[in-house]
Deep mutational scan, measured.
Amino acid sequence: DHDVVPEDKFQETLHLKEKEGCPQAFHALLSWLLTQDSTAILDFWRVLFKDYNLERYGRLQPILDSFPKDVDLSQPRKGRKPPAVPKALVPPPRLPTKRKASEEARAAAPAALTPRGTASPGSQLKAKPPKKPESSAEQQRLPLGNGIQTMSASVQRAVAMSSGDVPGARGAVEGILIQQVFESGGSKKCIQVGGEFYTPSKFEDSGSGKNKARSSSGPKPLVRAKGAQGAAPGGGEARLGQQGSVPAPLALPSDPQLHQKNEDECAVCRDGGELICCDGCPRAFHLACLSPPLREIPSGTWRCSSCLQATVQEVQPRAEEPRPQEPPVETPLPPGLRSAGEEVRGPPGEPLAGMDTTLVYKHLPAPPSAAPLPGLDSSALHPLLCVGPEGQQNLAPGARCGVCGDGTDVLRCTHCAAAFHWRCHFPAGTSRPGTGLRCRSCSGDVTPAPVEGVLAPSPARLAPGPAKDDTASHEPALHRDDLESLLSEHTFDGILQWAIQSMARPAAPFPS
Rank of each mutant, 00 (worst) to 15 (best):
G241H: 14
G244F: 13
V246M: 14
V246H: 11
P247Q: 12
P247I: 10
L252D: 15
D255Y: 13
Q257I: 04
L258I: 08
Q260K: 12
K261Y: 05
V268L: 10
C269A: 06
R270Y: 07
R270H: 12
D271R: 08
D271P: 04
G272E: 07
G272N: 12
I276C: 07
C277Y: 10
D279F: 07
P282W: 15
A284T: 06
F285G: 14
H286V: 06
H286L: 04
R295F: 08
E296W: 12
I297W: 10
I297G: 12
R303K: 15
C307H: 15
C307P: 15
L308N: 10
Q309H: 09
V312D: 10
V312H: 07
P317A: 12
A319R: 09
E321F: 14
P324S: 09
P324D: 08
P328L: 11
V329M: 00
S339P: 11
A340L: 07
E342K: 14
E343I: 14
V344S: 09
G346P: 10
P347N: 15
P348C: 08
G349N: 09
G349K: 04
L352I: 05
A353L: 14
D356H: 13
D356N: 13
T357D: 08
H363P: 10
L364S: 09
P367F: 06
P367E: 05
S369M: 07
L373W: 06
P374D: 15
L376D: 13
A380W: 12
P383Y: 04
P383T: 09
L384S: 05
L385A: 11
C386R: 08
V387M: 14
G388R: 09
G388K: 05
P389I: 13
Q392S: 11
Q392F: 12
L395S: 12
G398I: 14
G402V: 08
V403C: 14
G405I: 11
V410K: 02
T414W: 14
H415D: 06
H421F: 02
H421Q: 02
C424D: 02
S431C: 12
S431D: 06
G434S: 11
T435K: 06
R438D: 04
R440N: 10
S441A: 09
G444T: 00
D445Y: 08
V446H: 12
A449T: 03
P450N: 09
V451W: 12
E452M: 00
A456Q: 02
A460T: 08
A460H: 15
L462K: 07
A463K: 04
P464W: 06
G465V: 14
A472E: 06
E475A: 08
R480H: 02
R480D: 09
R480V: 08
L483S: 05
L486R: 03
F492L: 04
F492Q: 00
G494W: 08
G494A: 04
W498I: 03
P506W: 06
A508N: 09
A508D: 04
